[in-house]
Design a protein around this nucleic acid. Structure first.
Lengths: 138, 138
DNA sequence: CATCAAGTTGACGTTTACGTAAACGGCAGT
DNA sequence: ACTGCCGTTTACGTAAACGTCAACTTGATG
């Protein structure tokens, strides 16, 4: 009864998490070194990660896959993560968000262009294939 | 009369081209070193590039912007560029093209997801902004 | 209780993608 | 003929993003 909608407060060790998102533990520690992710620690000093940490890690990896440098990603995370208070700060952050959205839209456009290019190459070969079949008929 | 639809056979020096696509000459030479682009040479030995070369260079840069390594790009170029003759080879190339198209479609999807993530972050801050305005009213 | 897997922090190595500098040739303008 | 400027090759340097190894702790298990 008391559990409806409540997230099981899962947490994982570094190697658990590494396996889940398919990177090495070294990579995860490296990201921490760069200030991209801040796991909790046991009293002993072992890192452990929750779902928020995992979401963030996935965001990092997603960003990476599109040519964003880890430094740019950190910049992003810092801006969206800090407790930004005050109208001016909030406005700045929102503006930054808009800018990032625009960048992404542009990337999507470029990706479509890349798709077109490849499609043209492919169709070229399909054409050749047709011509070869024509020769067979002769 | 003899010029209708005929492309002016432009050609450029390496620094011209570099400026056009906004990379360094070093980068262009490096790509050649890796076998990604093969410019013509004057008798003197100077490289010069035509529109086809430029298109290829743009393709390379576009690929790069999406996290493809230069090695993967070379792989792509080689497959699409070789005079692949014979039915089997053509079919293989076409199949490769289909695979690449699928990869790109997946990237587009992921990019949309990234966009969503960022949008959520932004909306979060917009919400905060609204709350602050509410406080002012009190 | 020994050992063994899994955690920690350095520290150094490696790959990728160029930057940069040296040393040289060719050509245009003065 | 001298001065720049652009081209060439060769070679070494470097930043980013990890891989790898050493040396050490800790918790679990036969």
């Amino acid at each position: 009864m008391s559990r409806e909608g409540i997230q099981k407060d899962e947490s994982w060790t570094i190697s658990d998490l590494a396996q889940q998102v398919d990177v090495s533990t070294r990579t995860i520690r490296y990201y921490e070194e760069l200030g991209l992710i801040f796991p909790s620690r046991t009293e002993k000093g072992s890192r452990y990660y929750n779902r928020k940490d995992r979401a963030r890690l996935r965001l990092i990896l997603r960003g990476k896959r599109f040519g964003f440098s880890l430094d740019q990603i950190r910049e992003m995370i810092e801006l969206f993560d800090e407790d930004r208070t005050g109208r001016a700060q909030l406005l700045r952050t929102i503006e930054y968000g808009n800018q990032k959205l625009a960048e992404i839209d542009e990337k999507i456009m470029e990706l479509r262009q890349l798709r077109e290019d490849i499609l043209v190459y492919k169709q070229n070969f399909e054409q050749k294939l047709l011509e070869e079949n024509e020769e067979e008929k002769r």
